[in-house]
């Protein structure tokens, strides 16, 4: 029961955060392009491609998490996405690059606080994915019991 409540909290929290993060970026696309660029990882055309597609992906993922449809896939994809963000953030921090986190809008430099926050979200997503897959298997086993 406690795990189920935790799953609900994780799902709604991640869903709202993702939908909000995507919305903020869609509203200010040029600012998000500059945030992506400040990581110093990509050429301008790739920066533009990422900046124009990622926010919509976040919105869709956020809505899927809120609604709970195909949760195990949405949660797994969230783990991959947050994992990617974390790799980029840690890489920028380790290289000493003064990058804009770009997580929830402009003007927030990558710092131990932003790294800790995103790591927390990542762990939250991992829990959600693992729990969703376990739940799905348990339900399947209940419907089709093994002799």
């Amino acid at each position: 029961m406690a795990l189920r409540i935790l799953q609900w909290i994780a799902r709604l929290a991640l869903g709202v955060l993702f939908a909000y993060a995507g919305y903020v970026k869609v509203r200010e696309p040029f600012l998000f392009e500059m945030s992506v660029d400040s990581y110093q990882l990509f050429s301008p055309p790739v920066v533009i491609l990422i900046a124009r597609t990622l926010p919509w992906l976040e919105i869709v993922l956020g809505l899927l998490l809120i609604v709970g449809w195909q949760l195990r896939y949405a949660a797994s994809f969230t783990v991959l996405l947050l994992g990617g963000f974390l790799v980029a953030m840690f890489s920028a921090y380790a290289r000493g690059v003064e990058a804009n986190c770009g997580c929830f809008g402009p003007g927030e430099p990558i710092s131990p606080a932003t790294l800790a926050r995103d790591s927390g979200l990542f762990l939250c997503a991992v829990f959600l994915a693992v729990y969703s897959w376990k739940n799905h298997r348990a339900r399947r086993a209940a419907v089709h019991p093994v002799a």
Partner: peptide, 19 residues
């Protein structure tokens, strides 16, 4: 007024300025 942190490449900054 928008605050931006870090190095931004010229083609990206110029898109923002043009906007």
């Amino acid at each position: 007024t928008q605050k931006i942190v870090g190095v931004v490449q010229y083609p990206i900054l110029s898109r923002f300025l043009d906007s």
